[in-house]
């Protein structure tokens, strides 16, 4: 808890000092995308890393939020914030209903069912042309406005996204360090034992599934307003996989690790221009190598380093 609070504070500091050094809109756009994926990944980490339930369909919920915002604001001229809220509630309800049969499954079966859900959602985005604009999607999604400010520039949107992220990160830290957070980890470790201690296993799995879908939906809404258009392509299987990869590569046992994963997997292909054509190849290789040599992810590596340094200091002190 204490360590997470420190990391949260450090990140907050970073978010507000960074603009002193960053001036190019391009860097802001990368930071915004990192923030958006970061929000999804916060929720997904609680689902995957804490509750131990995989989802290969979260890009679908991400898209659900994006489309709700886009459709309600462009076709029904709803206020963007209201649209975001409606999308959030709708996604949570949808995830809850879909979760009831889905979360009864385990392991590979759960992975496949969530994958199937994600695929079907994406196909709906593509095919409900009258509502969603089909494969070309919807354009002219309006900007978000608040306090007389329009979040149109990359810099302004950067603050908006990262404030969202910081708030959700803070709430997530609270959640994982609570009675429910412990219960989730117990579920991921041994469902039978967790149940025998009075933990309502199915209900909590559903709860965290719906919450993580809610995070994805919020991120999707932000995404739609940022790009001011949506089409089905960012909401498919490969993005779902990318999201899971962020969680796992960062280190599914910690929230900050997952944020690190989101940053790395978003920034890497952007900044290494050489990678362009090699992106997929490198990306696949990273996944395999990480899982083989560092299954605890970056967070695991860092924790190991920290432990090592601590022990070394300890020894030094002992010798002195």
């Amino acid at each position: 808890m204490k360590r997470d609070a420190v990391i949260w504070a450090a990140l907050t500091l970073l978010v507000f000092t960074l603009p002193a050094f960053v001036h190019s809109p391009y860097y802001y756009s990368v930071l915004i995308i990192i923030g958006i994926f970061g929000i999804v990944v916060l929720g997904l980490t609680m689902l995957i890393g804490y509750a131990g339930q995989i989802s290969l369909g979260h890009a679908g919920f991400f898209g659900f939020g994006a489309y709700f915002s886009a459709v309600l604001t462009t076709r029904f001229h709803l206020d963007p914030w209201l649209a975001m809220l409606v999308g959030l509630v709708a996604t949570i309800v949808l995830a809850f209903l879909l979760g009831i049969p889905t979360l009864k499954l385990h392991g590979h079966y759960l992975a496949m069912a969530t994958l199937g859900l994600g695929m079907v959602l994406q196909i709906i985005f593509k095919e409900e042309v009258e509502l969603t604009g089909g494969p070309t999607g919807l354009t002219d999604v309006p900007h978000l406005k608040a306090f007389g400010m329009v979040f149109a520039s990359d810099q302004k949107f950067y603050f908006l996204v990262w404030i969202f992220l910081l708030v959700l990160y803070g709430l997530s830290i609270n959640l994982v360090h609570s009675r429910l957070g412990r219960a989730l980890r117990a579920i991921s470790s041994n469902q039978t034992a967790a149940g025998s201690l009075g933990i309502p296993v199915n209900r909590l799995k559903l709860l965290i599934f719906a919450v993580s879908a809610g995070y994805a939906s919020l991120a999707g809404s932000l995404y739609a307003h940022y790009l001011s258009f949506v089409n089905p392509s960012p909401f498919g299987f490969l993005v779902s996989v990318k999201l899971v990869a962020m969680v796992v590569i960062g280190g599914s046992q910690s929230l900050w690790g997952a944020l690190l994963g989101a940053g790395l997997l978003t920034a890497l292909p952007e900044f290494l221009a050489v990678l362009q054509d090699y992106e997929m190849l490198v990306y696949g290789a990273i996944l395999i190598v990480m899982m083989m040599f560092a299954p605890q992810g970056l967070a695991g590596i860092l924790a190991g380093l920290h432990e090592w340094v601590k022990n070394r200091d300890h020894k030094k002190n002992a010798q002195a």
């Binding site: 709430l171 997530s172 609270n174 959640l175 609570s178 009675r179 429910l180 957070g181 709860l207 919450v211």
Partner: peptide, 9 residues
């Protein structure tokens, strides 16, 4: 403590 008290502490 339920969900909301867990997140708002």
């Amino acid at each position: 403590a339920g969900f909301f008290s867990a997140i708002f502490k």
